[in-house]
Design a binder for these strands. Structure first.
Length: 246
DNA sequence: AACGGGTCCAACCGCCGTGGA
DNA sequence: GTCCACGGCGGTTGGACCCGT
């Protein structure tokens, strides 16, 4: 036996909302709130599924929704948060007041992903050009991988004790700390199981696949290419170039 | 003007987590 | 512990719109 549909589908309207329907929904919610989405359309006199009403309200009719193009700052924030959080659009939207997860998802798929790919291509080209001169660029990111059998691969960056790596880690720590504190509340960091430790940024992967990256004495990582991410952050602040010169 | 391909975005679908009975 | 209703979320899609030919 399959799951019961969220509402009776027969006789319910689908597709784009009319102005009149919007007005009915707005007025009803203003008067009564939306404690029960399932019952709402019946009470409001709408021939819509409760789910459809909720979506229309949260993605379009809510008074605090900001319409119009995304600013550069907003786009940068989306890109950075996406690198941290992945496709967790709701979590990203929570950091962008007035923007909905749906809107962010759309912007990501229509604009930002393409732009990022283009940037990546040009970055790869730059890396190629620097090939023989810059050993740091040659290093794979400081990330570990989970092999299929569960054993963890720790790359040389993690184990290497040379001073350059320590300097880089210090800078990473500073920016990681500042960046997360700027963007995320303490509760959120806690909820995501992110630990900022003194010698390294520790990120434990507790996603649905339930592969949890074990804590390591130095840099650990998750399936996110975290070191590439921090490198980007540092690059934006013009710090990594200095380190590379050292 | 007509057509076709690409782009964009609102809306839908189905799955998942949670809380109450 | 199990079932069910519900809200929330992310992936996908339909169709309007745009633009080049």
């Amino acid at each position: 036996m399959g799951r019961a549909p969220c509402c009776e589908k027969v006789g319910l309207k689908k597709g784009p909302w009319s102005f009149e329907e919007d007005q009915i929904l707005i007025k009803f919610i203003q008067l009564n709130g939306h404690s029960n989405w399932r019952a709402l359309p019946k009470k409001a006199g709408l021939l819509r599924c409760g789910k459809s009403c909720r979506l229309r309200w949260t993605n379009y009719l809510r008074p605090d929704i900001k319409r119009g193009d995304f600013t550069n700052e907003e786009e940068e924030t989306i890109i950075n948060l996406h690198q941290l959080l992945g496709n967790r659009w709701a979590a990203i939207a929570a950091r962008l007041p007035g923007r909905t997860d749906n809107e962010i998802k759309n912007v990501w798929h229509t604009h930002l992903k393409k732009r990022l790919n283009q940037n990546q291509n040009s970055t790869n080209q730059t890396k190629q050009n620097k090939n023989d001169n810059n050993q740091l660029y040659d290093q794979p990111p400081c990330s570990s991988e989970i092999k299929s059998d569960g054993e963890e691969n720790v790359d040389r960056c993690t184990k290497n004790d040379n001073n350059n790596d320590k300097d880089i880690k210090l800078v990473e720590l500073t920016f990681a700390d500042d960046f997360l504190k700027n963007l995320l509340s303490e509760e959120e960091i806690f909820e995501n199981d992110w630990n900022l430790e003194k010698d390294c940024v520790m990120i434990k992967d507790v996603d649905q696949s339930s592969k949890e990256v074990e804590e390591m004495s130095s840099c650990s990582s998750s399936d996110i290419d975290i070191m590439d991410f921090w490198r980007n952050v540092i690059m934006r602040n013009g710090e990594l170039q200095e380190i590379n010169i050292i």
